[in-house]
Amino acid sequence: MIITKAKPFSEILRSLEGEETIFLVGCSECATVCKTGGEEEVVAMKAHLEQEGKVVSGWVILDPGCNLLEAKKEFRKAKEEIARADSLLVMSCGGGVQIAQEASGKVVHPASNTLFLGTVKRFGHFQEYCSMCGECVLDLTGGLCPATRCPKGLLNGPCGGAKDGKCEVNPDNDCVWIEIYDRLKEIGRLKEFLASPVQVHDYSVNTKPASLVLERNKNRRDNQ
């Protein structure tokens, strides 16, 4: 899921300067799990803003906040509250903020900083395992991602810097290359890695902004 962290309230207030009436938008998925834009946080934000003398014309939790059709549908239901608002304060990822603008045409403000694609290790503990490189090498690296879990993104083996199995960049983390090595040995695939050609990532795969359109009926065609 997409991991977000709430911006300091003072920064949010600054961004709302000169605006009186605000409509709040939350998200039922990632932002709810990250406790940045679920119902609880949206209701709390409303109270905070009101304390600061703002008027909150209404709020909605989109399911999810990054879906344009969902946003349009829900915004229609809240048409009047949104029309009255000077702006929307969007408490989801950066994708959700932009979708809210596209669906409403209103001025939008982000309430969070969007950090990474995270796994949930346990409640409230998120870890980056994949940085969406577009050329997955997990098959070669024993199911552990060096592009993400090694701070240097090394694809051809470890640097010389690990100490007691810990990463030289952040000793709180295990060196993923030592983990990869142990895992490859365990599953008997070290030879395959050693025989593999020198890995160089193709960044043309990552040209921004990325987009993907599923081809309708593609599967059926492929099966013919």
Partner: peptide, 19 residues
């Protein structure tokens, strides 16, 4: 290139050296 003889596990440094 460089190599770290005191690396643990040493075998992993040697594999990288070979690469």
């Amino acid at each position: 290139a460089v190599v770290t003889p005191g690396y643990e596990p040493m075998e992993l440094q040697l594999l990288k050296m070979e690469r």
